[in-house]
Design a protein around this nucleic acid. Sequence first.
DNA 1: CATGAATGAGGTTTCATTCAT
DNA 2: GATGAATGAAACCTCATTCAT
Lengths: 220, 220, 220, 220
Amino acid sequence: MSDPIPEDTADAPAGLTARNAARTRQAIIDAATGEFAALGLGGARIDAIAARAGLNKRLLYYYFGNKEALFQAVLERAYQNIRSAERELRLDEIDPVEAIRRLVSFTWHYYVKHPEFLTLLNSENLHQAAHLKNSAQIQAMNSPLIQSLDQLLERGRAAGLFRGGVDPLQLYISIAALSFFYLSNRHTLSVVFGRDLQSPKAEAQRLSHMTELVLGYVLR
Amino acid sequence: MSDPIPEDTADAPAGLTARNAARTRQAIIDAATGEFAALGLGGARIDAIAARAGLNKRLLYYYFGNKEALFQAVLERAYQNIRSAERELRLDEIDPVEAIRRLVSFTWHYYVKHPEFLTLLNSENLHQAAHLKNSAQIQAMNSPLIQSLDQLLERGRAAGLFRGGVDPLQLYISIAALSFFYLSNRHTLSVVFGRDLQSPKAEAQRLSHMTELVLGYVLR
Amino acid sequence: MSDPIPEDTADAPAGLTARNAARTRQAIIDAATGEFAALGLGGARIDAIAARAGLNKRLLYYYFGNKEALFQAVLERAYQNIRSAERELRLDEIDPVEAIRRLVSFTWHYYVKHPEFLTLLNSENLHQAAHLKNSAQIQAMNSPLIQSLDQLLERGRAAGLFRGGVDPLQLYISIAALSFFYLSNRHTLSVVFGRDLQSPKAEAQRLSHMTELVLGYVLR
Amino acid sequence: MSDPIPEDTADAPAGLTARNAARTRQAIIDAATGEFAALGLGGARIDAIAARAGLNKRLLYYYFGNKEALFQAVLERAYQNIRSAERELRLDEIDPVEAIRRLVSFTWHYYVKHPEFLTLLNSENLHQAAHLKNSAQIQAMNSPLIQSLDQLLERGRAAGLFRGGVDPLQLYISIAALSFFYLSNRHTLSVVFGRDLQSPKAEAQRLSHMTELVLGYVLR
DNA sequence: CATGAATGAGGTTTCATTCAT
DNA sequence: GATGAATGAAACCTCATTCAT
């Protein structure tokens, strides 16, 4: 986005070409992410993406083939990023209650910092996950969190802290839901309920509420 | 939404031939609801809406002016419908625990039966609620549920059943979130987790999980 | 334009109907004159004319058949009006020099007061006078001015005041041209010459210049 | 305006196949000039312009953005052309009387050879000079004639030939008016006065009349 | 590798006009 | 006489994509 390729690269030695190709690809994906996130798959414009990237439109086709393939590449990058962040969480290293807090907090803050992830997912769902179904890469990226959560719930139960019988997938979906819906729907919710849901204070209250909700459920 | 046009008119010579403004308007809104829900605001085609309604394209402009105004009319109708359904809930007439169950169940089933509501809202959020902000009608339609839930929480607390300090708006948003996210994101979730989330059994499990989650939180 | 027909006229006795018909016709022509003058034949909108007249669009077709015929009727009315005004001039009753002054002044002020006449004529010329060629009425309306001017020039010549050999039609066209062009082109002229040509002072200067120009020519 | 594209290109396979931006731009302006001149801004059709130019309709938008911007470009070209022709006049090199004759004659013949200039200006005036006001280019193109005429009038006055106190702008407008109105309104004038104003003889008479009129005024 | 020029299909919207009551 | 509802054609404009260099 911010790094248009300098003029002289056209004459650069072959050794640098590969690096520039990667940089160009990344610039396109960055620009496309912004455009797709802001306007959806249908609303995004190839011209606008090229302009955002400071690149010729033809290059998008050279690197990605067409708009849908570019969208898929954007999704793949977005999933890489979140999976990468998820791997930083070390839920098995801390006590169960703290681990639940950390998971809720992580989910919330990841969505807050990556609002494009929300709209990209909404777009993909509108298209019934057609691009995900087409991406072996994404399907191979298992989230480590389900297993972590499973172990965590078992640890908590064994320690007599947590209730039993909790499906980790259901709980994970619920934790995601609580943050995702609030942030994704904040525009309509703010209008419908006439309350500012985007102030720092409102956001702090939301995180607190979600944490209590989840803990209230898992704690015996 | 639910077939205001009697069946027998559907068999009339060439779609809607009768000169009936109210019926024509409704037919356009019904067709537009389907199209917008399936493809989003940007992806929807005026031609397709006209074809769905069996009407001349020109009429959409005669009645609504342009695509965005039609989208707004569709949203207004969708909110009318859900508010109307919400008014049927009589949370104050039953015991608090049962009332919470009913609220979770209602929310879930309403979304299940009206999947278009989910995608319309996602579209509107993508556009940052521009049409809601433009609609005095929707802004005047207060949901009765926040107040009902507030009273319900207080009744439960007074009876020594529920915890105190629960913000009814936060809880309402959470209840909506748990259903909305699951249903709205089921396509991507199914692919990502490799699990069928749409089977009747899966849906029953989801409802059960959500109910326990919410009750686990509110009950002392 | 300013007289929408009162509600009760629909029930009025037959005797009044004819008068109402005439009034309705006139209202349509007034409205159409304004619209055609402002936007040209191509730019005028039937809907807008109906709205200006406060009448149902269908009535325009009832009374005039189609847009072009309405335009023709507007032109006919415009020519009736100017011919009628021209007949008020009594150039033969005053002395030749004064008569020239009066003719120049009349032409100028008529155009100033009836700017719609200028744009209607421009529209008609763009269409190569198709409607005038179609109107027996307009072709039958001879301007009295050519003959008046002819006699006037002869009177002046006989009195030793005016030069001979002046073609009254050429002179009449010139007198019209001097006012018409200035007023019709004032928007572009003002921009191109960076001078306000529409102020009262500028208009007075124009009239003075034109009068001197014409008199300078005809006087020996 | 006058065929910048060499003849032989016109015979190329499918109109303009060569990828030549300047030539394409010019071809569009030429075609648009004809269409706008014949039908006005409102009556002109983008499709027709593209067909006249033998180009894909999309290109008009590629180069000019929209219809109004294209119209502005056409106006700009038209003013460039007339200013360029005006600069060829050397009014300061000949004697004052001859110079007046030349100015009247030039104005007349320019309009005769460039009838599109008349209708374009009428269109622009109908739109109240909106495009001229938007064109810094046109506003920067001062006509050299006002100054030339000013000097010329002074030369004539100093030589005791011309009257004093003549406003060169008023006189210039009058000279333009005499030709412009006659040519612009010849269709309606011919019908109204039942006289052929377009024959070579009629045109010669007009030029003669105008010259005498102007000289009759300026000469002492 | 990179780019400005070009395109066909199709999108939203407008328009004069007619229908049915 | 009068009117709201309805229509087919066509207008302007946009878009993803490809061509030629």
